[in-house]
Design a binder for these strands. Structure first.
Length: 509
RNA sequence: ACGCUAAUAGUCUAGUGGCAGGACUUCGCCCUUCCAAGGCGGGAACCCGGGUUCAAAUCCCGGUUAGCGUACCA
């Protein structure tokens, strides 16, 4: 745990500098909901684009859709969410501890009470004289806690609707049309980004567990008999991934195993190529976001942690100040969802492969936008002994990429600088202009929100059309002709060379 | 969800049953030829709703939000 609450510092700077703030603050707020401010929105957009580029656009057979967030009850009846998201809970009258009613009955009687109606559960608790395991107090009546937000569709409330608790269902209920679009040929993937909602009993930990959260998901459909014939396997086979096996978890582990994706599949640490493929892509994405390889790993979830349909769930966990947190979930959902929806809707979801009709299996990487954003904030946060703070964002996720300052406001420097700022914006850079106060303070303000480069216009600029680029991380500066600025910034943004190498290169030139 | 604790400008904080103060930030002007530190001036707050009281930001009750603990998180 952080001694001085790193998360509180991050929340503070997020609120002050326009990253993220609680929803409806002026009315006391609403727990578990957050609004992205100007910088948070830019950064969130960059994270989504990064995902879109590598998980969707770079792929051959993956297309993105955008489905409705509100879905009729029938969808969740079929998917099983109505049942599994509706937990019957009992509370001890004496110590107020809460338990799942079906769970506590099973523990006491050995018989499964899953899915029983409330009255039956209460009856079983009375009959078997089940007491609170904590203090032996009397248990109260069972109450339903539904984690889905419920509403009514139509002005007269014709049918019940729910905000989706995961984005995945839109894809499964559209499977027939999507498969048709993909010419009924496996494998293919359908991606979707969007909000999901869960009415958590107690949301906590800022963006890590909200009631509305954004997911970037793919449902990759494949023939289970060809689970190790991923068409793009060569692209990822050599990528190193960190794995924590079930075996390691039982023995107590300190360091994850590092191995190539190829090795992970061959040694059966990961069930198949489809899953391993995404573990590799996620690893690459996190590295690009500036998160170090030693700070995250994929944990093979234990049987009791995984959903009942799962043929293997691998959580991407990050080592954060508040402990190990899941920020991405990877699931092999088998044909569970397609089977359920095909049956409930009386549709035929089968696809012909090698003259056989099969129901595809699905591999689902599900990335949490807010959780990834928070991870980046925490891992890039820096402070010195003066109490000054800044974000060392890689340019790829930095909400603003360059700040343009006139050394002074007067003598035409401000006008010159503003023109440079305008040109950079037109060239596609996320540029920020500031002329107020002293230059040092402006550098500090830029650093605080993680702007990687500052461009300063001074008296030399007027004389010889030169500008100075300042590097956030080293505070080094280099002067170069104005006409070279856009190209120079482009090279620095790519991050192929560090600032010092760049200075040397420019000097030689 | 329950329990404990807390809530005063954007941030940090002082404070008392009787006019709400400071620092930093922010804004304007001046100064200033490169890393938050000069000068002058301005703006900005007692979480919400009830109650007690002549008088409540202060005391009481309820709520909200946050932190911690327990529980929950297919």
């Amino acid at each position: 745990m952080a001694e001085d609450r790193l998360m509180d510092k991050i929340i503070d700077v997020c609120k002050r500098r326009g990253f993220v703030n609680p929803t409806a603050e002026i009315y006391g707020g609403a727990g578990g909901f957050f609004d992205y401010g100007p910088l948070g929105t830019l950064m969130r957009q960059k994270i989504i684009e990064l995902w879109r580029q590598s998980f969707v656009l770079d792929e051959d057979k993956v297309f993105e859709i955008s489905g409705s967030t509100l879905l009729p009850e029938s969808v969740f009846q079929a998917s099983g969410h109505l049942e599994s998201f509706d937990d019957p809970l009992v509370q001890c009258a004496k110590c107020n501890s809460m338990y799942r009613a079906d769970d506590i009955i099973k523990r006491n009687t050995g018989e499964s009470a899953e899915g029983l109606p409330i009255a039956e559960l209460d009856k079983k608790i009375k009959e078997n004289e089940i007491k609170c395991p904590n203090c032996k107090g009397e248990l109260g009546n069972t109450r339903q806690f539904n984690l889905m937000f419920k509403t009514e569709i139509g002005s007269t409330g014709g049918i019940n609707g729910y905000l989706r608790p995961e984005t995945a269902q839109n894809i499964f209920i559209n499977f027939k049309r999507l498969a048709g679009f993909m010419r009924n040929k496996l494998p293919f993937g359908i991606a979707q980004f969007g909000s999901s909602f869960r009415n958590e009993i107690s949301p906590r930990s800022f963006l890590i567990r909200g009631r509305e959260f954004e997911q970037m998901e793919i449902e990759m459909f494949y023939d289970p008999e060809k689970e190790n014939e991923h068409p793009r396997w060569e692209e990822v086979a050599d990528i190193d991934i960190n794995i924590v096996t079930r075996d390691m978890q039982e023995k107590g582990w300190k360091k994850p195993l590092t191995m190539t994706a190829e090795e992970a599949v061959n040694k059966k640490h990961v069930p198949n190529q489809y899953l391993a493929y995404y573990l590799a892509l996620e690893t690459e994405m996190l590295l690009v976001l500036g998160i170090k390889a030693e700070d995250f790993w994929f944990r093979h979830m234990q049987d009791h942690e995984a959903p009942h349909y799962s043929a293997g769930n691998y959580d991407l966990e990050v080592n954060l100040s508040i402990g190990h947190m899941e920020i991405v979930g990877n699931a092999l959902r088998t044909d569970y969802d397609l089977r359920k929806h095909a049956k409930a809707s009386k549709s035929n979801y089968e696809i012909v492969v090698d003259e056989k009709k099969i129901l595809p299996h699905v591999c689902e990487p599900s990335l949490g936008v807010g959780r990834i954003l928070y991870t980046v904030l925490e891992k890039c946060y820096r402070e010195d002994d003066r109490g000054w703070t800044w974000f060392q964002f890689p340019p790829t996720v930095a909400p603003l990429e360059v700040a343009v300052f006139p050394l002074m406001k007067k003598d035409g420097l401000a006008e010159f600088a503003h023109d440079v700022h305008t040109e950079l914006k037109e060239a596609g850079y996320l540029s920020f202009y500031d002329e107020s106060g002293k230059i040092g303070k402006r550098y500090a303000r830029a650093d605080e929100v993680g702007i990687p480069f500052c461009v300063t216009i001074d008296y030399d600029s007027l004389k010889e059309y030169s500008v100075t680029i300042r590097d956030r991380d080293t505070m080094d500066q280099i002067k170069l002709p104005l006409e070279d600025l856009e190209v120079a910034l482009g090279e620095l943004m790519e991050g192929d060379s560090d600032f010092q190498e760049f200075i040397d290169f420019a000097n030689e030139k």
